[in-house]
Amino acid sequence: MTYKLILNGKTLKGETTTEAVDAATAEKIFKQYANDNGVDGEWTYDDATKTFTVTE
């Protein structure tokens, strides 16, 4: 399945997608991606749209 991440960081904003077997796997990938890019904030997930959002 395709999952989407919306980044609302102070210095980085944008979107990315990943292919993952489930939401938990996608979350791990996205949290590593956000960490690698210096984004740390409040996480939400919308199962209907398979979208994670992180807001600093």
Rank of each mutant, 00 (worst) to 15 (best):
K4D: 02
D47E: 11
M1N: 12
A34T: 09
E42R: 10
W43Y: 03
A48R: 06
V21F: 13
L5R: 00
K50I: 03
K13W: 09
T25W: 12
K31P: 00
Y33S: 02
M1L: 11
V21M: 12
A24N: 15
L5S: 00
E27P: 00
K28N: 15
Q32W: 05
D47M: 15
E19A: 12
A24V: 09
Q32A: 14
E15T: 07
G41L: 03
T55E: 08
A34H: 02
D36P: 01
L5P: 01
E15H: 06
T25F: 05
T51S: 06
T49M: 05
T2G: 05
M1Q: 11
T17L: 12
T18K: 04
V21P: 15
A20T: 13
D46N: 13
E15R: 05
D47Q: 08
A20F: 03
I6N: 05
K4L: 10
A20H: 03
A48W: 12
D40L: 06
N37L: 06
T51H: 03
G14R: 10
L5G: 01
L7F: 14
L7N: 02
E56D: 12
T55I: 07
T44G: 05
T49E: 09
A20M: 03
L5Y: 02
W43T: 01
N37T: 11
T25Y: 09
A48K: 15
F52I: 01
G14V: 15
T2D: 06
G9K: 04
D36R: 07
E15A: 07
A48N: 11
A26S: 02
K4N: 10
T51V: 15
T2M: 12
T18Q: 07
V54Q: 01
A48L: 09
V54A: 03
K10W: 06
T53R: 05
D46Q: 05
D46I: 05
D36L: 14
E56F: 06
T11Y: 09
A48P: 11
T55S: 09
D22M: 04
G9F: 13
F52L: 01
T49I: 09
I29Q: 06
G9N: 04
A34P: 01
D22H: 04
A26E: 00
T11I: 11
L12Y: 13
T44S: 08
K13E: 15
I29T: 12
A34G: 04
M1G: 09
T49P: 02
T17R: 10
I29R: 06
D36K: 09
K50Y: 07
D46M: 04
G38T: 04
T55V: 11
T2E: 12
G41R: 01
I6F: 08
M1T: 15
D47P: 15
K13F: 07
T51W: 03
G41K: 02
Y3L: 01
G9I: 06
A20Q: 06
Y33N: 02
E15P: 03
T18E: 05
A23K: 14
T18R: 04
N35I: 12
T17Q: 12
T44W: 08
E42T: 10
L7T: 08
Y3A: 01
W43V: 02
T11A: 08
A23E: 10
I29G: 03
M1A: 11
Y3M: 01
L12W: 10
T16A: 13
F52M: 02
W43N: 00
T16G: 05
K28D: 11
K4E: 03
A23N: 07
F52V: 01
K28V: 14
V54H: 02
Y45H: 02
T53W: 06
G14F: 15
V21W: 14
A20S: 08
E56K: 03
Y3T: 00
M1R: 10
V21R: 07
Y33P: 00
E15L: 04
N35G: 10
Y33L: 06
G9S: 13
V21D: 09
G41W: 07
E56G: 04
A24R: 11
I6E: 04
V39G: 02
G9A: 09
T49R: 07
T25N: 12
Y33F: 15
D40Y: 13
G41D: 02
A34E: 01
Y3N: 00
A24K: 12
G38P: 01
I6A: 05
Y3P: 00
K50V: 04
N8F: 06
I6V: 13
D47I: 14
K50R: 14
D36H: 09
T11F: 13
G38F: 10
E56N: 04
D40Q: 13
V54R: 01
I6T: 06
T2I: 13
L5D: 01
Q32F: 07
Y33V: 05
T44K: 11
A34L: 08
T25P: 02
D46L: 04
G41V: 02
Y33M: 07
V21H: 12
E15W: 09
A23T: 13
N37S: 10
T51G: 02
V54P: 01
T16S: 10
K50D: 03
T2V: 11
T2S: 07
D22N: 11
M1P: 08
N35Q: 09
D46A: 04
L12E: 13
V39D: 02
L5Q: 00
Y33E: 02
T17S: 14
I29N: 15
W43Q: 01
A48F: 14
F30L: 05
I6W: 04
G41A: 02
Y45V: 02
T2W: 12
A24Y: 11
V39P: 02
K4S: 06
N35S: 11
T16Y: 10
K13D: 07
Y45T: 01
A23H: 14
E19I: 12
N8T: 08
K31G: 04
T53S: 07
A20R: 03
A20E: 04
K50E: 03
T51I: 09
T16H: 11
